[in-house]
Design a protein around this nucleic acid. Structure first.
Lengths: 225, 225
DNA sequence: CCGACTTTGTGCATCGCTTCACAAAGGGAT
DNA sequence: ATCCCTTTGTGAAGCGATGCACAAAGTCGG
């Protein structure tokens, strides 16, 4: 039922989207090392995936390879960046400047990929006014103003669990539709708002499950990366 | 082709394992509020999943519900904890005590679920000797000794990207088979070693992809090519 | 210009997870 | 004891992702 008039299918599978940043990282490394072209086999190896999967993923973006040769590294970097929306500048606000929020503010991986930390906010008068990573921590009261005036479109929640839903409601009311949640709670948001969650303790629990199985049961090899 | 000889199918689907911690968190909250029993509908709501999925997930552990009534909260907490291996104590070492490692060391969610930070290690003489979260930071040189003597079975890698593979090789050589990797690299490990990765910038990139799509919609000028 | 070689892009079979829908199982009221 | 109501546990259909295998498409040497 797909119309053939749309030569470029804009419906990229979610699983593919999740891997594009992986390819991008590998490609950036190659570009820095002066590699000009790369085969799907080599790139797949560097990204830790199957080469057929890599080719199918890239085919969703378009036909950017050359048969018999491979992919032009620079060109592919550009195409993936554009597809992911990294050719534009994203203003990010971090709410909650505890240990984690502080680490995130200082994390280099954000800035290096088109993400700019445009605001740090916290409710604790103790930390408001501090300078972290060159930014002044502001009071949560000005949340809406910061979002609106600085064009913040992505909010990172690093608050305690109890505060997360309330802050979430406020940023959604302020028009934000993309949230990265580090608080260990299930956020409830209206349709159209995108929430991704990162829960450090969940990852450990999954590891513990497999570790227990390895220790106790017979031979069960598992490798999920 | 699956052997029916295994009466209790110990092969719990990976997708299910990844959700068990979610259910556990919701159940713990209910237990604290004094809830005695819960229906799959309510628990699924609290965990943010579909109720049929929840029931199928729990059915992999055994038949722990009562038809017409629901699940006993306490009992289910115990069963899930046991299945995840949280009834035992896991010694975790954190390698790399930068901003992120520090935040992880202070993160309460670890300790509260059977994970004990048994070691903090770093290569930088500047931070070695510091006290963080009640622990003394040790030099990476004693990595193997710490792992062996304190029974560390899970290692958290929070090193810079360049150091990650080398540290990984060392901890694997020391017998560790479960690694939580925060460094933005694809680790190469032998079969039987379990690596889970958390990449903060990847999560942001996925959000940016969807945000771009929302912002542009059908009118967005795309193919500049 | 041709033929051998390389590598992409993709049709297809398969697999695992999700979701629906309902029979089976239990509780409580009468 | 029987009936009705609630909720579980699961067969089966549906759906998307994966991986194989190969034809198509390009390069390069002669």
């Amino acid at each position: 039922m797909k119309s053939p008039s749309q030569s470029r299918d804009r419906g990229i599978p979610e699983a593919t989207v999740a891997r594009l940043p992986l390819y991008l990282r590998a490609l950036n490394g190659m570009a820095e090392r002066g590699v000009a072209t790369v085969s799907s086999e080599d790139l797949a190896m560097a990204a830790g995936v199957n080469s057929a999967k890599l080719r199918k993923d890239l085919s969703h973006l378009g036909s950017y390879g050359t048969r018999g040769v491979g992919y032009d590294v620079e060109y592919l970097v550009y195409q993936i960046s554009r597809e992911l929306g990294l050719t534009q500048d994203w203003a990010v606000a971090i709410v909650g400047v505890g240990n984690l929020g502080r680490a995130l503010a200082n994390y280099g991986g954000f800035v290096s990929r088109g993400f700019r930390v445009a605001g740090l906010l916290d409710a604790d008068p103790e930390v408001v006014g501090d300078d972290i990573a060159g930014l002044n921590v502001e009071h949560i009261d000005v949340l809406e103003a910061v979002i609106e005036r600085r064009g913040v479109s992505i909010v990172v929640l690093a608050t305690p669990a109890l505060a997360a839903q309330e802050v979430c409601d406020r940023v959604v009311a302020a028009g934000v539709t993309s949230i990265l949640n580090f608080a260990p709670v299930v956020l409830s948001v209206p349709d159209g708002v995108d929430v991704r969650k990162v829960d450090l303790s969940i990852e450990l629990q999954i590891l513990a499950f497999h570790e227990q199985r390895k220790a106790g049961g017979p031979l069960m090899a598992v490798d999920s990366q």
